[in-house]
Computed example of a mutant assay.
Amino acid sequence: MKREDEDTRLHLDLLDADDEEYELEYEDRAFDAEGREIALDAQQKSGRQLYFRELFRLQRELVNLQDWVVATGHKLVILFEGRDAAGKGGVIKRITQRLNPRVARVAALPAPNDRERTQWYFQRYVAHLPAAGEIVLFDRSWYNRAGVERVMGFCTDEQYEEFFRSVPEFERMLARSGIQLVKYWFSISDEEQHLRFLSRIHDPLKQWKLSPMDLESRRRWEAYTRAKEVMLERTHTAEAPWWVVQADDKKRARLNCIHHLLSLVPYRPVPHTEVVLPQRERHEDYLRRPVPTDLIVPAAY
């Protein structure tokens, strides 16, 4: 392949990587109350370009952070909490999008089974904590007990109070073991959650995100507010402080969260040896066999 052809192909591959983000952005389409998609005006389109430019820059820094975590054996845990439709999943996708899944992984635990309900409350979360050189992002965490379990009556008053007695010491234990713990609460307004739920109702690509529990959480908005206020007050410690992300604007929330995360980790650029692509060995007796036509995926596009 000629050098000019290689350069063209590499450029197209870079564009493909950008297209992955544009595909994710398709999920962020806005709908009005009647289910009609809302078109972007010129100012919004300009803001979208700025968003992508900043997002790609921050994602490059996340790769540098990842390299430093691996090189130093750092252990990083990031918790993402917030109301349903607050944007936790969106920022987690953007953080992990360019990272090595063997280094940065997401823990999104389902409701506990019968056996797990009899365990020490933190036990099933401990199994997902990082070893040296790993990053774990919890899409909801042990703070379920202070939120959904409290509001929906899935725990007793005694279990609720025991959680608040235990969690500060549990998080201090994590800090003493060398784990850096970062806790984010994504905060959205009543009106914004209402609109995002409508968007999920009207968008067939998002309807799977709506569960009966989500709908019930919408009805119990005020109870969730009270539970969140108690949680922040009783679990904000010097070793594991809470950070609140204003999330009514999804894109600003993502950029602000990633920018803040980068500021909390003392990473530095890690030098890499130059990678040289070796020449492929060629043998005169090698003959590549054709693939049987009945194994080939039909070219529908």
Rank of each mutant, 00 (worst) to 15 (best):
K2Q: 10
R3F: 12
E4A: 14
E4H: 10
D5V: 05
D5N: 08
D7F: 11
L10K: 13
D13Q: 14
L15A: 12
D16R: 14
D16T: 12
D16Q: 13
E23T: 13
E27N: 13
D28G: 14
D32F: 01
E34R: 13
G35C: 12
R36H: 15
E37P: 03
I38D: 10
A39V: 12
D41K: 09
R48M: 15
Y51F: 15
E61G: 06
N64W: 11
L65Q: 10
W68H: 06
W68P: 03
V70P: 05
A71F: 02
T72H: 12
G73L: 08
H74K: 12
H74Q: 11
V77M: 12
F80S: 04
G82L: 05
G82K: 03
A85H: 02
K88T: 11
G90F: 03
G90I: 01
I92V: 13
K93C: 04
K93Q: 15
P101G: 09
R102M: 06
R102V: 00
V103T: 14
R105K: 14
V106A: 10
A108H: 07
L109S: 08
D114I: 06
E116V: 06
R117A: 06
R117P: 03
T118Q: 15
Q119V: 01
Q119R: 13
Q123E: 13
V126F: 09
V126H: 05
P130D: 08
A132K: 15
I135R: 02
I135Q: 05
V136C: 03
L137N: 01
L137W: 04
W142I: 06
Y143T: 04
Y143L: 03
Y143F: 08
A146W: 03
V151A: 02
V151R: 03
M152I: 02
G153V: 07
F154M: 09
C155A: 10
T156G: 10
D157Y: 06
E158Q: 15
E158W: 01
Y160S: 09
F163G: 03
F164I: 00
F170M: 04
R172S: 11
S177N: 12
G178N: 02
L181K: 00
W185L: 08
F186C: 02
D190I: 00
E192S: 07
Q193P: 05
L195N: 09
L198T: 05
D203E: 05
Q207L: 11
W208T: 04
S211P: 00
L215Y: 04
E216V: 05
R218A: 06
W221M: 07
W221F: 10
E222G: 05
Y224I: 03
E229D: 15
V230S: 04
V230L: 14
L232P: 02
R234V: 02
T235K: 02
H236M: 03
T237G: 04
A238V: 13
A238M: 09
P241S: 07
V244I: 15
V244R: 06
V245C: 12
Q246E: 15
Q246D: 14
D249K: 01
A253Y: 01
H260A: 01
L261N: 00
S263N: 01
V265S: 04
R268D: 06
V270G: 03
H272I: 03
T273C: 08
E274M: 09
Q279H: 11
Y286K: 06
L287P: 00
P290T: 12
P290L: 12
V291S: 09
V291Q: 11
P292R: 13
T293C: 05
I296S: 07
V297I: 14
A299E: 14
Y301N: 11
Y301K: 11
